[in-house]
Amino acid sequence: MGCVSCTGAVLDGNVLTLVRREASPEAVDGSGISPDRFLGKSAAEIARLPARLGGREVTLGDLFAIEGFHPEQIVVRGDVRSLTDLGRGMTRGEVTVLGDVGPRVGAEMRGGEIVVQGAAGDALGARMRGGRILVEGGAGDFCGTAAGEPGQTGGTIVVRGPLGKEAGARMRGGMLVALGSTGERTGADMEAGTIFVAGRTGPEPGLGMHGGTIVVFGDAEPPATFDYACTYQPVFPGDYLRELRRWGLAEEDGGVEGAFRRYLGDLDSVGKGEILVRDQS
């Protein structure tokens, strides 16, 4: 599962590896760790690039032991729970984190792939425009966005573990797949795009939703400002499943079976959003 090409590269030692020298409670700004920024540079040159630890200016080499020579395949190891903004704005290549990582991973990302083999912090993929993020663990609040900010406009985020509150809030495009459960106000104020939740959503999914789709395979209770329309068998989730399968993120064959209850809302807003909840009866 995950970054197949990267895994192969790990085995042959070609990847560029950044190993955190020592854990620190101070935030490490990881926005400079991206294939775009490393392209054309040697490990030694990358080590001399500026970075920030807390409020201090340091070099990446101060924070990480850097080796390898494939700047489009980056592996980050060690205790990086305080690493923020990893891969911010990246457009290409692959970044793999072997463990847990801090907030805002993949923020404003436009292309390429980030794989987090542990858990991720808040604002995962905030304002993401393209590319793919896979998190093997869970992630914090505001997945695809940040508090009060616009949401994801493109790309795909897949999180295997639970997600916090307001996942996919203010989303305007792309796909967010929660293979676990999500917190309150999933897809709040959403305008477009598609959110899949394999488990259950927290209270008030889709609150203030203008458009877009939330598909829930587990349980969800849409707000009272959503109208139940019908129970039917939508075809399009099968198209998404196939796309996920093509990326190695889904294993089952066939389409999406079963009927879904369709709710339209939020009627306190434009009301062109939809929540599809798999019918368990």
Binding site: Y232, Q233, V235, D239, E243
Partner: peptide, 20 residues
């Protein structure tokens, strides 16, 4: 519509559900 992998799919409401 849904945009997926560079393709746009239209969902047209019909009497048995949707025509994609």
């Amino acid at each position: 519509s849904k945009k997926l992998g560079g393709r746009r799919l239209w969902r047209v409401p019909v009497m048995d559900g949707e025509f994609v």
